[in-house]
Amino acid sequence: MSGTFDLRRLLRRDSSVLQLLLLTAAIFAAMSALNPEKFLRAYNFQSLTFLAPELGLLAVAMMLAMLTGGIDLSVIGIANLSGILAGLFFHAVGAPRGPALMHLPLLPVAAGIAIALAAGALAGALNGLLIARLRITPILATIGTGQVYVGLALVLTGGPAIVGFPALWDAIGNATLFGIALPLLLFLLVGAGVATALSRTALGVELFLIGTSAKAAAFAGIRLGRAIFLSYVATGVLASLAGILLSARTNAAKSDYGTSYLLQAVLIAVLGGTNPAGGQATVIGVAIALAALMLLSSGFQLMRFSNFLVDFIWGAFLLIVIAINALRNRAR
């Protein structure tokens, strides 16, 4: 239940963070040895700081859902739907293309951000309602709503991508502040916020208790329904934030962008020490796992492995990690 960034305390409390750091260092060393010229270039790491945050936000969202023993398979649908809604809004108030769209002022762009986040909150609220109120299993509820969100995105766009976003919107995904990528700063800010909320607020502590034992939490007087509902709303908002970053970075939004992110978000959450059965999760673990896996896939991509092979490696990595975790737990 660690949320603070006091490294020593963290390491003492949770040895898995240390193991993750070692794993990351090992991957870094292996990839540097395999691609001596290309991997260590500053450009490579710079591009990762723009690329990784959207996936990191999805992984944190997945972690939140797993914290209570659930899962959210609709995060990609929420992310794309949010980007598409904002894009349609911009095309309506600005113009479908040209300078009128490009130079849309701050106020409408802020309104677009609000629309995207509100869409995420609403979609998350529907998930929360189905899971907490109607008590549908999270897997089935979010498979169903995921279809609806992707479906709505398809209906709204008719299939092709929405291309062209205002320059201010694109800056969210491409600008730098103090020489650091804006998406990375955003991810660090949100990550620290979620970590603090989990360790310092009543809701955060309640979520851990629910994940550890729902029955005990209920006997302790925790309103399970409310806490779980709110956690899915937060998951939805995080997913829409990822959608904002994705559409801002690529200057486009489409109903089937980022579909391979779903597996990767699950993998990063699990590798980061999240227990899919609930009760165990740290943002810092997820952040380190994100770094480890981004280094791994960028290293393989530099070696000209196809994206399909990288998917294969992600899958293999997931299975190996859970096998090792199981062996370790058994040894204990």
Partner: peptide
């Protein structure tokens, strides 16, 4: 995981 493995 196995789905990603097989497709990949």
């Amino acid at each position: 995981g196995t789905a990603a493995l097989a497709r990949g």
